[in-house]
Design a protein around this nucleic acid. Structure first.
Lengths: 246, 246
DNA sequence: AGACGATTAATTGTTTGACAATTAAACGCC
DNA sequence: GGCGTTTAATTGTCAAACAATTAATCGTCT
């Protein structure tokens, strides 16, 4: 039972998790490399197996490792896929917004600022696939009888297609959080037939601009969409305040 | 020992962690609310305490809960702070880039595209504080004898000041990952005296533009910085390939 | 009555030891 | 050589305990 110096004053499981994470980040443990068994790790760090397990669960929660049972099982360093990172980012962003009372204007401004950054690239690189997705979502949005939630979900899909059109996975990853995290806030807005029509028209304009490789026109459409959305939110808030007074 | 239906086929600790996380996200557990004790949770879910602990460690790894020892201790729902989210995003982004062989151009393009999105807002809203930070970092960058790592670190600080100047915490959060995650890639570049001078001149130009409330000029400076950085990286790669041949 | 110290109870942190479930490899048999 | 069986390694889970920490409670003294 080798004792290992793990200086800090936190939980043992935290310290061990950090030690292993550092080893991964530093490249001492390559992707798909197998970690020592729980018993060996316990030995190595001079702690019991449950403590090691708690550390491994921490890492698993961050998608840094995966575990497998059986004879050749164990914990393996996980390749952090863009998919996994998307999901993490979305849940983190959603919680962040809901827990910190970020006001609608701020979130909205951030989202459209980021999207504008993609518009130019998307106008250059978009494939027919991206355009088709955008058109399909626009079509879905004009269906009558769509719930507000479904309308928002389609809105998210439209904007993700726009972002993906930039053909830069790093951008897609970064913006996934910003766009999806907005949805709960957007869901609070009641979309009247008239406001839906206005939004759809702007979507149409943006899609047309992207198709025509006009980045600036797309950016302008996004800016209008941003301010219109903010106006809508203000109306909702105002009418809600009105109702509260009565 | 009440048995609870936790249908899925994963680890018990995973299922329990998800159940609790869902309760938090759904708002059944408010911020700073205390979870039942480990013993009670074990009872409630019909599992042993170590299993519950593994679940709690998973949540702790995501900063969703914090734990406290002692008589009034327990697990409490954590307010996910922007600080915590920054850190998570940075480590995730860094790993994502290092594990997925994202090429320098892609990361660079994403970073500067996102920063450009902030330039306009920063030009409007920057405070003297932000400007002072930018100037200070420019000054640091012109110190002779600075290591490449220190130069890059200062570069990151400069750009974070620019982003923070937009005065939108959501933007700052989203971009923290993009900017900081680039640093390991940037660190691989050797900055000659001449290339440093060129970068500093561009930084100067950007800072001047931000100070003068000229968003477009700042954006242009960023674009130049982007392409210059990409050129530098290409040179480094080429000379490395050259050396490998000999 | 009020202040202060010791006790107590609740809770998380950690250990030990065991058993179940799973999986691949080794073995033996045909 | 091919195929089932055994075996060994490993993670998943449980049970029961003890240590460490912390706040409340109680008792005593002034």
């Amino acid at each position: 039972m080798k004792k290992r110096a793990l200086l800090q004053g936190q939980d043992l499981s935290t310290q061990i998790a950090e030690a292993i994470r550092d080893a991964i980040v530093a490249g001492d443990l390559l992707i798909d490399a197998r970690l020592p068994s729980e018993a060996e790790l316990a030995d190595h760090f001079g702690v019991s197996r449950p403590t090691v397990r708690e550390a491994l669960k921490r890492l698993a929660a961050q998608n840094l490792i995966r575990t497998q049972r059986g004879a050749t099982g164990g914990a393996f360093v996980n390749r952090l896929s863009f998919e996994d990172a998307y999901d993490q980012q979305i849940t983190t962003s959603t919680l962040l917004l809901s827990m910190n009372a970020v006001d609608f204007d701020t979130a909205c401004e951030a989202r459209y600022a980021l999207e504008s950054a993609c518009a130019d690239l998307a106008a250059t690189r978009r494939t027919p696939d991206h355009l088709a997705t955008m058109r399909a979502e626009i079509h879905r949005q004009s269906q009558p009888g769509l719930t507000d939630e479904a309308f928002c979900a389609s809105d998210v899909a439209f904007h993700r297609a726009l972002v993906d059109g930039a053909g830069n996975p790093v951008l897609s990853y970064q913006l996934a959080g910003a766009i999806e995290a907005m949805q709960p806030l957007m869901n609070m807005i009641t979309f009247t037939a008239r406001s839906r029509a206005a939004i759809i028209a702007l979507h149409q304009h943006i899609a047309d601009s992207i198709e025509a490789h006009h980045g600036e026109a797309a950016e302008q459409g996004l800016a209008e969409l941003c301010s219109y959305t903010q106006t809508l939110a203000k109306q909702v808030l105002a009418s809600r305040a009105q109702r509260a007074k009565n």
